[in-house]
Design a binder for these strands. Structure first.
Lengths: 334, 334
DNA sequence: TTGTAGGCGTTATCAT
DNA sequence: ATGATAACGCCTACAA
């Protein structure tokens, strides 16, 4: 690594002259500027970012802590974050909590120590269950935090959430009103998460408003979700629509319906939760509530960048990114 | 951020006393050690990592540059990398090249400037196409690089590759020998990547050895891959097995076969490329060549960590992580 | 046992 | 127009 000092020695000038010349300061003569920049290019000088960070006490790095990257939703969010940060010359350090409280705490501990200017986090399942918020509270005193999707209400920070309640409410209402469905099964794989609860509540509201009755199949932690779905459908032959509140069980349910030789969507409609290309792995192409992970990531990043750009403490806000009901081949055309 | 200096002032001792006390140096008396550690805990002192990095010229951070995170294979690899690095107290900065040469170059430029101790990279599609290796060559002089999966032979660094050729060769041989298949269709979505070529060549070898004839359907860049598959199968009714060399088209092909009311695996066997839970989104559960992304990530990280642990220049090695043929419900039981 | 001083690489202030 | 000096926070050889 070539440093300012080395350049200075080679050119027989002082370190500060070199520094100023490279930042095109008006204090430096054109001749020396040329000499300096030429040598710097030749030796491929790049300022040491660590030194700059120490000097400026700014890292231009954001810590991103997510439960998993193999969940396509989080992968998409992270993609949105990365792109947005990149446009503002920020980098991103990623920690994966693996749904573990302890790993999440360690990540915050490690990074809150000057390594990053701020955090973007979706809290781990365990954290949410045990409602342990100490690490967030202590860090947020010195470093701004933005939470998305999995959010803890009692932590005082900006948040970006999904309209979980409303989106499922609308999907169920659509099935009831436009398709005249009478027995809508809700399949859940995530009922213990706050977002899962919201989605279930949206479903319940729509059902209650129409005086239908609720059917909820909870698969969280079960080994053979597909068989349970199949079994349920066999026992309840009047099911005429399915809403799944996570990605995989939606596709699964579709496959099970086909296995029973029922026609989709004529006999049974299916609406899943999805991402950009959920449709590619299903036939017929599945209708989904699209969570817009990219938008959520972008929004989270912009929110954090805005906080970082101000010196003063900002007041925290909660933003909602609306999902989109994408009607495809597993629902009837409106 | 509370610093050593502040602690020193509050305790009326020198900075170095505090520093030594906190690192439990034998030079410091027990009494002062206690005073120091107690105040440090009370004020929640944590050494500033940036300062430590500058001092030691080690960051304990690895730069990871991948084409995408929404490709489950890369997501899985990154997970393996993160876990392994974490076990060795390393962090990870992720840049997503988005298959763009320029973005990849920018990432290397930015990070090779003291921000990271080493790189783990899967090269972008564009980089591979244009075979531009300058940024790797210049960085690798000062910072070790480990390449995985998408690898450039001419770059002098350690590599972790997949047995692309062998795995497809074995899958095809299995279909020919154990299932007596006569017309095996290979579906490719990635023929322009080196790994795609290797996989195709593995297929070709198996076909030639058995005096069968090749059928290759290239879908790269096509808008309606599913329809093309369907069309192909209608035109070639004697196809009795399909190998797909990427994740999505495997599931797609399976769905198209079912659409034609052919039985899987009795009429047609299907083998895709897959990850841990590919089977969950298909019915019947798809047989796959499992790439073991986690292992690849782990191996890449360990390789880099080993290089970093030695001061001397190591000699570069190329390691191969064997894929596993996971026979499931879309092939006949052996 | 404790303190002083110097340096990691950069930048900014203040002299010359 | 150029240079000397100090500072960011930490560590450590050396001095007291």
């Amino acid at each position: 690594m070539v440093t300012l000092k080395e350049l200075a020695k080679l050119l027989n000038v002082s370190v500060s002259t070199v520094s100023k010349a490279l930042s095109d300061s008006s204090e430096i003569g054109e001749a020396t500027k040329k000499r300096v920049t030429e040598l710097a290019n030749e030796l491929n000088y790049k300022p040491n970012r660590i030194a700059q960070q120490l000097k400026s006490s700014e890292t231009k790095v954001v810590g991103v802590v997510v439960p998993s990257l193999m969940n396509p939703f989080f992968a998409e969010v992270v993609h949105g974050i990365e792109t947005t940060l990149g446009n503002h010359n920020y980098d991103m350090t990623i920690c994966i909590s693996n749904e573990s409280l302890e790993k999440e705490q360690r990540s915050f501990d490690l990074l809150s120590t000057g390594s990053v200017d701020g955090f973007i986090v979706a809290v781990a399942r365990e954290t949410q269950k045990e409602y342990n918020i100490k690490h967030f509270e202590s860090v947020s005193k010195s470093t701004p935090i933005v939470m998305f999707d999995r959010v803890l209400n009692d932590v005082n920070c900006s948040k970006v959430v999904v309209d979980d309640f409303q989106s499922v409410y609308e999907a169920a209402s659509y099935l009831i009103e436009k398709e005249d469905r009478k027995h809508i099964l809700l399949i859940s794989n995530i009922q213990e998460l706050s977002v899962g609860q919201h989605r279930i509540n949206g479903y319940k509201k729509a059902i209650q408003e129409s005086n239908l009755s609720e059917s909820i199949l909870k698969l969280d932690g079960e080994k053979n979700p597909d068989e349970l779905i199949l079994h349920y459908l066999k026992e309840h032959k009047d099911v005429d629509a399915i809403i799944s509140i996570d990605h995989i069980t939606g596709i699964m349910a579709l496959n099970m319906v086909k296995k029973l030789n029922k026609h989709v969507p004529n006999d049974i409609s299916v609406i899943g939760f999805g991402y950009a290309d959920s449709q590619f792995v299903s036939s017929p192409k599945i209708s989904v509530i699209n969570q817009k992970g990219y938008e959520i990531g972008k929004s989270s990043a912009l929110t954090l960048l805005e906080i970082l750009s101000k010196k003063v403490k900002t007041t925290y806000k909660t933003e909602m990114v609306k999902s989109e009901l994408v009607l495809n081949e597993t629902t009837k055309k409106a």
